[in-house]
Design a protein around this nucleic acid. Structure first.
Lengths: 208, 208
DNA sequence: ACCAAGTGAAAAGCGGGCTTTTCACTTGGA
DNA sequence: TCCAAGTGAAAAGCCCGCTTTTCACTTGGT
Protein backbone atom coordinates (compact mmCIF):
# COMPACT_ATOMS: atom_id res chain seq x y z
CA UNK A 1 0.00 0.00 0.00
CA UNK A 2 1.48 3.30 -1.04
CA UNK A 3 1.11 6.27 1.24
CA UNK A 4 -0.53 9.32 -0.29
CA UNK A 5 2.42 11.51 -1.18
CA UNK A 6 2.68 14.37 1.27
CA UNK A 7 4.82 16.29 -1.15
CA UNK A 8 4.08 19.98 -1.33
CA UNK A 9 4.67 22.45 -4.12
CA UNK A 10 5.17 26.04 -3.10
CA UNK A 11 3.53 25.29 0.20
CA UNK A 12 0.45 23.59 -1.19
CA UNK A 13 -0.29 19.90 -1.43
CA UNK A 14 -1.19 18.39 -4.78
CA UNK A 15 -4.82 18.22 -3.76
CA UNK A 16 -4.82 21.86 -2.80
CA UNK A 17 -3.38 22.81 -6.18
CA UNK A 18 -6.03 20.74 -7.90
CA UNK A 19 -8.83 22.25 -5.85
CA UNK A 20 -7.54 25.77 -6.44
CA UNK A 21 -7.38 25.21 -10.18
CA UNK A 22 -10.87 23.77 -10.19
CA UNK A 23 -12.21 26.72 -8.30
CA UNK A 24 -10.51 29.21 -10.60
CA UNK A 25 -11.98 27.38 -13.57
CA UNK A 26 -15.46 27.47 -12.08
CA UNK A 27 -15.11 31.16 -11.32
CA UNK A 28 -13.97 31.86 -14.86
CA UNK A 29 -16.81 29.77 -16.24
CA UNK A 30 -19.37 31.66 -14.16
CA UNK A 31 -17.97 34.88 -15.56
CA UNK A 32 -17.72 33.89 -19.22
CA UNK A 33 -20.77 31.65 -19.52
CA UNK A 34 -22.72 34.25 -17.58
CA UNK A 35 -21.70 37.24 -19.69
CA UNK A 36 -20.78 36.04 -23.16
CA UNK A 37 -22.61 32.74 -23.19
CA UNK A 38 -21.69 29.09 -23.20
CA UNK A 39 -21.28 28.53 -26.94
CA UNK A 40 -19.30 31.75 -27.31
CA UNK A 41 -16.79 30.73 -24.67
CA UNK A 42 -13.86 28.65 -25.85
CA UNK A 43 -11.82 26.41 -23.61
CA UNK A 44 -8.84 28.54 -24.44
CA UNK A 45 -10.40 31.74 -23.09
CA UNK A 46 -11.69 29.88 -20.09
CA UNK A 47 -8.23 28.65 -19.25
CA UNK A 48 -6.66 32.03 -19.90
CA UNK A 49 -9.02 33.77 -17.47
CA UNK A 50 -8.62 31.03 -14.89
CA UNK A 51 -4.86 30.98 -15.33
CA UNK A 52 -4.94 27.26 -15.83
CA UNK A 53 -3.24 25.38 -18.62
CA UNK A 54 -5.39 23.38 -20.97
CA UNK A 55 -3.50 20.33 -19.84
CA UNK A 56 -4.77 20.81 -16.31
CA UNK A 57 -8.19 21.69 -17.63
CA UNK A 58 -8.59 18.22 -19.06
CA UNK A 59 -7.22 16.70 -15.88
CA UNK A 60 -9.99 18.43 -13.97
CA UNK A 61 -12.94 18.19 -16.34
CA UNK A 62 -13.85 15.68 -18.99
CA UNK A 63 -14.79 18.43 -21.42
CA UNK A 64 -16.38 21.84 -21.70
CA UNK A 65 -19.86 20.51 -21.08
CA UNK A 66 -18.75 19.13 -17.74
CA UNK A 67 -17.80 22.65 -16.67
CA UNK A 68 -21.24 23.95 -17.56
CA UNK A 69 -22.82 21.13 -15.59
CA UNK A 70 -20.62 21.91 -12.60
CA UNK A 71 -21.28 25.65 -12.69
CA UNK A 72 -24.98 25.07 -13.09
CA UNK A 73 -24.91 22.65 -10.18
CA UNK A 74 -23.28 25.33 -8.04
CA UNK A 75 -25.93 27.87 -8.99
CA UNK A 76 -28.65 25.35 -8.28
CA UNK A 77 -27.20 24.42 -4.95
CA UNK A 78 -27.40 27.94 -3.61
CA UNK A 79 -30.97 28.30 -4.80
CA UNK A 80 -32.08 25.00 -3.32
CA UNK A 81 -30.48 25.81 -0.02
CA UNK A 82 -32.02 29.25 0.35
CA UNK A 83 -35.53 28.19 -0.57
CA UNK A 84 -35.26 25.06 1.53
CA UNK A 85 -34.17 27.05 4.55
CA UNK A 86 -36.97 29.52 4.04
CA UNK A 87 -39.51 26.70 4.00
CA UNK A 88 -38.07 24.97 7.03
CA UNK A 89 -37.96 28.22 8.98
CA UNK A 90 -41.63 28.86 8.25
CA UNK A 91 -42.81 25.27 8.57
CA UNK A 92 -45.54 26.20 11.02
CA UNK A 93 -46.43 29.57 9.56
CA UNK A 94 -49.52 30.27 7.46
CA UNK A 95 -49.22 29.44 3.75
CA UNK A 96 -49.02 32.97 2.55
CA UNK A 97 -46.05 33.62 4.76
CA UNK A 98 -44.32 30.46 3.59
CA UNK A 99 -44.84 31.34 -0.04
CA UNK A 100 -43.45 34.81 0.44
CA UNK A 101 -40.43 33.46 2.29
CA UNK A 102 -39.66 30.85 -0.35
CA UNK A 103 -40.06 33.20 -3.29
CA UNK A 104 -37.96 35.85 -1.62
CA UNK A 105 -35.26 33.36 -0.81
CA UNK A 106 -35.10 32.11 -4.35
CA UNK A 107 -35.25 35.50 -6.01
CA UNK A 108 -32.60 37.00 -3.80
CA UNK A 109 -30.06 34.38 -4.76
CA UNK A 110 -30.85 34.39 -8.45
CA UNK A 111 -31.09 38.15 -8.86
CA UNK A 112 -28.05 38.93 -6.78
CA UNK A 113 -25.76 37.89 -9.61
CA UNK A 114 -26.86 38.47 -13.17
CA UNK A 115 -24.41 35.87 -14.38
CA UNK A 116 -26.18 33.20 -12.40
CA UNK A 117 -29.50 34.34 -13.75
CA UNK A 118 -28.27 34.19 -17.32
CA UNK A 119 -26.83 30.73 -16.86
CA UNK A 120 -30.03 29.49 -15.22
CA UNK A 121 -32.45 31.01 -17.67
CA UNK A 122 -30.63 31.09 -20.97
CA UNK A 123 -27.41 29.17 -21.25
CA UNK A 124 -28.61 25.84 -19.94
CA UNK A 125 -31.73 25.78 -22.10
CA UNK A 126 -31.30 23.15 -24.74
CA UNK A 127 -27.54 23.19 -24.36
CA UNK A 128 -27.20 19.41 -24.41
CA UNK A 129 -29.12 16.37 -23.22
CA UNK A 130 -27.14 16.08 -20.01
CA UNK A 131 -27.53 19.76 -19.15
CA UNK A 132 -31.18 19.64 -20.02
CA UNK A 133 -31.61 16.70 -17.71
CA UNK A 134 -30.02 18.55 -14.83
CA UNK A 135 -32.12 21.63 -15.52
CA UNK A 136 -35.36 19.64 -15.57
CA UNK A 137 -34.41 17.73 -12.46
CA UNK A 138 -33.81 20.98 -10.61
CA UNK A 139 -37.07 22.40 -11.83
CA UNK A 140 -38.85 19.28 -10.67
CA UNK A 141 -37.29 19.77 -7.25
CA UNK A 142 -38.62 23.30 -7.03
CA UNK A 143 -42.01 22.11 -8.18
CA UNK A 144 -42.08 19.44 -5.53
CA UNK A 145 -41.54 22.19 -2.98
CA UNK A 146 -44.52 24.04 -4.33
CA UNK A 147 -46.60 20.89 -4.25
CA UNK A 148 -45.44 20.19 -0.71
CA UNK A 149 -46.38 23.63 0.53
CA UNK A 150 -49.71 23.37 -1.20
CA UNK A 151 -50.57 19.97 0.19
CA UNK A 152 -49.64 20.93 3.72
CA UNK A 153 -51.83 23.99 3.42
CA UNK A 154 -54.69 21.92 2.08
CA UNK A 155 -54.34 19.52 4.99
CA UNK A 156 -54.56 22.50 7.31
CA UNK A 157 -57.65 23.76 5.51
CA UNK A 158 -55.82 26.92 4.59
CA UNK A 159 -56.68 26.57 0.95
CA UNK A 160 -58.57 24.35 -1.44
CA UNK A 161 -56.91 21.58 -3.40
CA UNK A 162 -55.57 22.46 -6.85
CA UNK A 163 -53.12 21.25 -9.45
CA UNK A 164 -50.10 22.55 -7.61
CA UNK A 165 -47.71 21.03 -10.09
CA UNK A 166 -49.25 23.07 -12.85
CA UNK A 167 -49.17 26.22 -10.79
CA UNK A 168 -45.54 25.64 -9.88
CA UNK A 169 -44.65 25.18 -13.51
CA UNK A 170 -46.45 28.38 -14.43
CA UNK A 171 -44.78 30.33 -11.70
CA UNK A 172 -41.31 29.10 -12.61
CA UNK A 173 -41.92 30.02 -16.21
CA UNK A 174 -43.10 33.45 -15.17
CA UNK A 175 -40.05 33.95 -12.96
CA UNK A 176 -37.68 32.98 -15.74
CA UNK A 177 -39.23 35.35 -18.21
CA UNK A 178 -39.73 38.25 -15.84
CA UNK A 179 -36.26 38.09 -14.34
CA UNK A 180 -34.57 37.77 -17.71
CA UNK A 181 -36.61 40.66 -19.01
CA UNK A 182 -35.61 42.68 -15.97
CA UNK A 183 -31.97 41.87 -16.66
CA UNK A 184 -32.18 43.23 -20.16
CA UNK A 185 -34.13 46.36 -19.28
CA UNK A 186 -32.09 49.51 -19.42
CA UNK A 187 -32.07 51.24 -17.06
CA UNK A 188 -32.75 48.30 -14.80
CA UNK A 189 -35.61 48.93 -12.35
CA UNK A 190 -34.96 48.30 -8.66
CA UNK A 191 -34.99 44.58 -8.05
CA UNK A 192 -37.28 44.98 -5.10
CA UNK A 193 -40.02 46.00 -7.47
CA UNK A 194 -39.70 42.75 -9.42
CA UNK A 195 -39.51 40.74 -6.25
CA UNK A 196 -42.66 42.30 -4.88
CA UNK A 197 -44.57 41.74 -8.08
CA UNK A 198 -43.55 38.09 -8.31
CA UNK A 199 -44.23 37.53 -4.66
CA UNK A 200 -47.76 38.75 -5.12
CA UNK A 201 -48.14 36.65 -8.22
CA UNK A 202 -47.11 33.54 -6.29
CA UNK A 203 -49.58 34.26 -3.55
CA UNK A 204 -52.46 34.96 -5.88
CA UNK A 205 -51.70 31.83 -7.89
CA UNK A 206 -51.74 29.62 -4.83
CA UNK A 207 -54.79 31.18 -3.26
CA UNK A 208 -56.36 31.74 -6.69
CA UNK B 1 -32.59 48.57 -70.02
CA UNK B 2 -32.44 44.76 -70.13
CA UNK B 3 -35.65 42.81 -70.16
CA UNK B 4 -36.05 40.24 -67.38
CA UNK B 5 -35.17 36.95 -69.04
CA UNK B 6 -38.29 34.91 -69.60
CA UNK B 7 -36.24 31.79 -69.99
CA UNK B 8 -37.68 28.69 -68.41
CA UNK B 9 -36.01 25.56 -67.15
CA UNK B 10 -38.06 22.40 -67.18
CA UNK B 11 -41.17 24.48 -67.34
CA UNK B 12 -40.35 26.79 -64.45
CA UNK B 13 -38.99 30.29 -64.59
CA UNK B 14 -35.83 31.16 -62.72
CA UNK B 15 -37.82 32.90 -60.02
CA UNK B 16 -40.01 29.87 -59.57
CA UNK B 17 -36.96 27.68 -59.17
CA UNK B 18 -35.57 30.06 -56.60
CA UNK B 19 -38.82 30.24 -54.69
CA UNK B 20 -39.20 26.47 -54.73
CA UNK B 21 -35.67 25.99 -53.39
CA UNK B 22 -36.27 28.56 -50.70
CA UNK B 23 -39.44 26.85 -49.62
CA UNK B 24 -37.81 23.44 -49.53
CA UNK B 25 -35.02 24.90 -47.43
CA UNK B 26 -37.47 26.45 -45.00
CA UNK B 27 -39.38 23.17 -44.75
CA UNK B 28 -36.18 21.28 -44.08
CA UNK B 29 -35.14 23.85 -41.51
CA UNK B 30 -38.46 23.58 -39.70
CA UNK B 31 -37.98 19.84 -39.58
CA UNK B 32 -34.34 19.75 -38.47
CA UNK B 33 -34.24 22.79 -36.21
CA UNK B 34 -37.51 21.62 -34.71
CA UNK B 35 -36.44 18.07 -33.99
CA UNK B 36 -32.68 17.96 -33.62
CA UNK B 37 -32.04 21.58 -32.79
CA UNK B 38 -30.40 24.53 -34.44
CA UNK B 39 -26.80 23.98 -33.34
CA UNK B 40 -27.00 20.28 -34.15
CA UNK B 41 -28.12 20.92 -37.71
CA UNK B 42 -25.37 21.45 -40.26
CA UNK B 43 -25.85 23.27 -43.52
CA UNK B 44 -24.94 20.07 -45.27
CA UNK B 45 -27.79 18.08 -43.70
CA UNK B 46 -30.16 20.96 -44.30
CA UNK B 47 -29.32 20.99 -47.97
CA UNK B 48 -29.48 17.23 -48.26
CA UNK B 49 -33.00 17.11 -46.80
CA UNK B 50 -34.13 20.05 -48.93
CA UNK B 51 -32.51 18.61 -52.04
CA UNK B 52 -30.73 21.88 -52.64
CA UNK B 53 -27.05 22.24 -53.37
CA UNK B 54 -24.97 24.25 -50.95
CA UNK B 55 -24.21 26.55 -53.83
CA UNK B 56 -27.86 27.47 -54.12
CA UNK B 57 -28.15 27.60 -50.36
CA UNK B 58 -25.74 30.51 -50.25
CA UNK B 59 -27.50 32.14 -53.15
CA UNK B 60 -30.70 32.09 -51.13
CA UNK B 61 -29.52 32.82 -47.60
CA UNK B 62 -26.58 34.75 -46.29
CA UNK B 63 -25.79 32.04 -43.77
CA UNK B 64 -27.32 29.48 -41.44
CA UNK B 65 -28.50 32.09 -38.99
CA UNK B 66 -30.54 33.76 -41.72
CA UNK B 67 -32.47 30.51 -42.15
CA UNK B 68 -33.28 30.38 -38.47
CA UNK B 69 -34.48 33.96 -38.60
CA UNK B 70 -36.66 33.17 -41.60
CA UNK B 71 -38.15 30.03 -40.09
CA UNK B 72 -38.81 31.80 -36.84
CA UNK B 73 -40.43 34.66 -38.71
CA UNK B 74 -42.75 32.18 -40.40
CA UNK B 75 -43.71 30.63 -37.09
CA UNK B 76 -44.30 34.04 -35.60
CA UNK B 77 -46.40 35.16 -38.51
CA UNK B 78 -48.91 32.38 -38.07
CA UNK B 79 -49.17 33.07 -34.35
CA UNK B 80 -49.62 36.79 -34.80
CA UNK B 81 -52.27 36.28 -37.41
CA UNK B 82 -54.35 33.81 -35.40
CA UNK B 83 -54.29 35.83 -32.19
CA UNK B 84 -54.91 39.05 -34.06
CA UNK B 85 -57.90 37.58 -35.82
CA UNK B 86 -59.28 36.25 -32.57
CA UNK B 87 -59.06 39.70 -31.01
CA UNK B 88 -60.59 41.45 -33.97
CA UNK B 89 -63.43 38.95 -34.13
CA UNK B 90 -64.22 39.53 -30.46
CA UNK B 91 -63.60 43.27 -30.40
CA UNK B 92 -66.96 44.00 -28.86
CA UNK B 93 -67.20 40.94 -26.66
CA UNK B 94 -66.61 40.94 -22.90
CA UNK B 95 -62.98 40.69 -21.78
CA UNK B 96 -63.13 37.16 -20.60
CA UNK B 97 -64.35 36.01 -23.97
CA UNK B 98 -61.59 37.95 -25.75
CA UNK B 99 -58.92 36.47 -23.53
CA UNK B 100 -60.15 32.96 -24.13
CA UNK B 101 -60.30 33.52 -27.87
CA UNK B 102 -56.80 34.97 -28.06
CA UNK B 103 -55.21 32.30 -25.89
CA UNK B 104 -56.96 29.54 -27.79
CA UNK B 105 -55.87 31.00 -31.10
CA UNK B 106 -52.28 31.22 -30.03
CA UNK B 107 -52.10 27.82 -28.38
CA UNK B 108 -53.72 26.05 -31.29
CA UNK B 109 -51.11 27.25 -33.73
CA UNK B 110 -48.17 26.64 -31.47
CA UNK B 111 -49.25 23.25 -30.19
CA UNK B 112 -50.38 21.93 -33.53
CA UNK B 113 -46.77 21.37 -34.57
CA UNK B 114 -44.24 20.38 -31.96
CA UNK B 115 -41.44 21.55 -34.19
CA UNK B 116 -42.78 25.07 -34.14
CA UNK B 117 -43.09 24.93 -30.38
CA UNK B 118 -39.52 23.76 -29.99
CA UNK B 119 -38.19 26.46 -32.26
CA UNK B 120 -40.20 29.14 -30.48
CA UNK B 121 -39.41 28.05 -26.94
CA UNK B 122 -35.96 26.54 -27.12
CA UNK B 123 -33.99 27.02 -30.28
CA UNK B 124 -34.29 30.77 -30.58
CA UNK B 125 -33.39 31.42 -26.94
CA UNK B 126 -29.98 32.98 -26.83
CA UNK B 127 -29.12 31.69 -30.28
CA UNK B 128 -27.58 34.95 -31.44
CA UNK B 129 -28.12 38.69 -30.99
CA UNK B 130 -30.19 39.00 -34.16
CA UNK B 131 -32.40 36.04 -33.31
CA UNK B 132 -32.78 37.25 -29.76
CA UNK B 133 -33.86 40.62 -31.07
CA UNK B 134 -36.54 39.06 -33.24
CA UNK B 135 -37.74 36.90 -30.39
CA UNK B 136 -38.02 39.84 -28.01
CA UNK B 137 -39.74 41.97 -30.62
CA UNK B 138 -42.36 39.29 -31.16
CA UNK B 139 -42.86 38.90 -27.45
CA UNK B 140 -43.32 42.64 -27.14
CA UNK B 141 -45.96 42.44 -29.83
CA UNK B 142 -47.88 39.80 -27.92
CA UNK B 143 -47.54 41.82 -24.75
CA UNK B 144 -48.91 44.90 -26.46
CA UNK B 145 -51.97 42.83 -27.37
CA UNK B 146 -52.41 41.91 -23.74
CA UNK B 147 -52.02 45.53 -22.72
CA UNK B 148 -54.48 46.57 -25.40
CA UNK B 149 -57.11 44.11 -24.29
CA UNK B 150 -56.59 45.15 -20.69
CA UNK B 151 -56.87 48.86 -21.35
CA UNK B 152 -59.98 48.49 -23.44
CA UNK B 153 -61.55 46.45 -20.67
CA UNK B 154 -60.58 49.06 -18.10
CA UNK B 155 -62.13 51.78 -20.22
CA UNK B 156 -65.30 49.72 -20.29
CA UNK B 157 -65.19 49.28 -16.53
CA UNK B 158 -64.96 45.55 -16.97
CA UNK B 159 -61.91 45.29 -14.75
CA UNK B 160 -59.63 47.42 -12.63
CA UNK B 161 -56.38 48.84 -13.93
CA UNK B 162 -53.25 46.75 -13.41
CA UNK B 163 -49.73 46.32 -14.72
CA UNK B 164 -50.83 44.49 -17.84
CA UNK B 165 -47.33 44.40 -19.25
CA UNK B 166 -46.15 42.47 -16.23
CA UNK B 167 -49.09 40.09 -16.41
CA UNK B 168 -48.49 39.51 -20.11
CA UNK B 169 -44.86 38.73 -19.46
CA UNK B 170 -45.80 36.29 -16.74
CA UNK B 171 -48.35 34.58 -18.90
CA UNK B 172 -45.99 34.21 -21.83
CA UNK B 173 -43.38 32.74 -19.53
CA UNK B 174 -45.91 30.33 -18.14
CA UNK B 175 -47.03 29.30 -21.62
CA UNK B 176 -43.47 28.65 -22.74
CA UNK B 177 -42.69 26.49 -19.77
CA UNK B 178 -45.97 24.62 -19.65
CA UNK B 179 -46.10 23.86 -23.34
CA UNK B 180 -42.49 22.73 -23.47
CA UNK B 181 -43.08 20.55 -20.44
CA UNK B 182 -46.15 19.11 -22.12
CA UNK B 183 -44.07 18.35 -25.21
CA UNK B 184 -41.57 16.36 -23.19
CA UNK B 185 -44.12 14.46 -21.13
CA UNK B 186 -44.48 10.85 -22.10
CA UNK B 187 -47.16 9.84 -22.69
CA UNK B 188 -48.28 13.29 -23.77
CA UNK B 189 -51.56 14.35 -22.17
CA UNK B 190 -54.38 15.56 -24.44
CA UNK B 191 -53.55 19.06 -25.57
CA UNK B 192 -57.02 20.25 -24.73
CA UNK B 193 -56.21 19.75 -21.09
CA UNK B 194 -53.22 22.10 -21.32
CA UNK B 195 -55.21 24.60 -23.31
CA UNK B 196 -57.97 24.67 -20.77
CA UNK B 197 -55.60 25.11 -17.86
CA UNK B 198 -53.73 27.95 -19.53
CA UNK B 199 -56.94 29.58 -20.62
CA UNK B 200 -58.14 29.66 -17.04
CA UNK B 201 -54.80 30.94 -15.91
CA UNK B 202 -55.00 33.83 -18.36
CA UNK B 203 -58.47 34.74 -17.21
CA UNK B 204 -57.60 34.59 -13.53
CA UNK B 205 -54.47 36.67 -14.09
CA UNK B 206 -56.34 39.40 -15.89
CA UNK B 207 -59.28 39.47 -13.52
CA UNK B 208 -57.04 38.70 -10.57
C1' DA C 1 23.12 15.10 -6.11
C1' DC C 2 19.51 12.56 -7.88
C1' DC C 3 15.00 11.92 -9.86
C1' DA C 4 10.02 11.01 -9.66
C1' DA C 5 6.26 13.84 -9.58
C1' DG C 6 4.25 18.14 -10.68
C1' DT C 7 4.00 22.46 -13.03
C1' DG C 8 2.79 26.13 -16.84
C1' DA C 9 3.25 27.22 -21.55
C1' DA C 10 3.19 26.07 -26.06
C1' DA C 11 2.43 23.42 -30.04
C1' DA C 12 0.57 20.04 -32.78
C1' DG C 13 -3.08 16.86 -34.13
C1' DC C 14 -7.59 16.37 -35.32
C1' DG C 15 -12.14 16.76 -36.93
C1' DG C 16 -15.92 19.19 -38.44
C1' DG C 17 -18.62 22.80 -40.00
C1' DC C 18 -19.08 26.87 -42.88
C1' DT C 19 -18.36 28.84 -47.22
C1' DT C 20 -16.59 29.25 -51.90
C1' DT C 21 -15.33 27.35 -56.09
C1' DT C 22 -15.02 24.12 -59.71
C1' DC C 23 -17.03 20.80 -62.78
C1' DA C 24 -19.82 18.71 -66.22
C1' DC C 25 -24.28 18.88 -67.85
C1' DT C 26 -28.90 20.98 -69.40
C1' DT C 27 -31.88 24.41 -71.13
C1' DG C 28 -33.76 27.25 -74.58
C1' DG C 29 -33.30 31.79 -76.98
C1' DA C 30 -30.76 33.96 -80.98
C1' DT D 1 -25.84 25.44 -84.29
C1' DC D 2 -24.04 28.30 -80.81
C1' DC D 3 -23.69 29.98 -76.17
C1' DA D 4 -25.16 32.58 -72.08
C1' DA D 5 -27.50 31.39 -68.21
C1' DG D 6 -28.83 27.97 -65.00
C1' DT D 7 -28.52 23.57 -62.75
C1' DG D 8 -27.00 19.75 -59.21
C1' DA D 9 -23.16 17.42 -57.34
C1' DA D 10 -18.83 17.38 -55.60
C1' DA D 11 -14.65 18.99 -53.85
C1' DA D 12 -11.58 21.97 -51.91
C1' DG D 13 -10.25 25.75 -48.88
C1' DC D 14 -10.54 27.67 -44.77
C1' DC D 15 -10.92 28.50 -40.06
C1' DC D 16 -11.64 27.46 -35.48
C1' DG D 17 -12.30 25.00 -31.49
C1' DC D 18 -11.56 20.86 -28.89
C1' DT D 19 -8.29 17.76 -27.19
C1' DT D 20 -3.78 15.55 -26.63
C1' DT D 21 0.99 15.71 -26.36
C1' DT D 22 5.45 17.59 -25.90
C1' DC D 23 8.69 20.60 -23.70
C1' DA D 24 11.59 22.70 -20.36
C1' DC D 25 11.49 23.88 -15.74
C1' DT D 26 10.57 23.42 -10.52
C1' DT D 27 9.90 21.10 -6.31
C1' DG D 28 11.22 18.44 -2.50
C1' DG D 29 11.86 13.69 -0.68
C1' DT D 30 15.70 10.23 -0.59
Amino acid sequence: MSEPSARRYSGRSVEEWKAARRERLLDAALELFGTEGYPATSVERLCALAKVSTRHFYHEFQNKEAVLLAVHAQVIEVAVRSTGEALVATADAPVQERIVAAVDGYLRTVMADLRRARISFVEVVGASPAVEEQRIAFRELLISSVVGVGEVAVARNELTDKDFRFLGLCFIGAVNTVVYDWMLTDPRPPEQQVQTALRELAVSLMLS
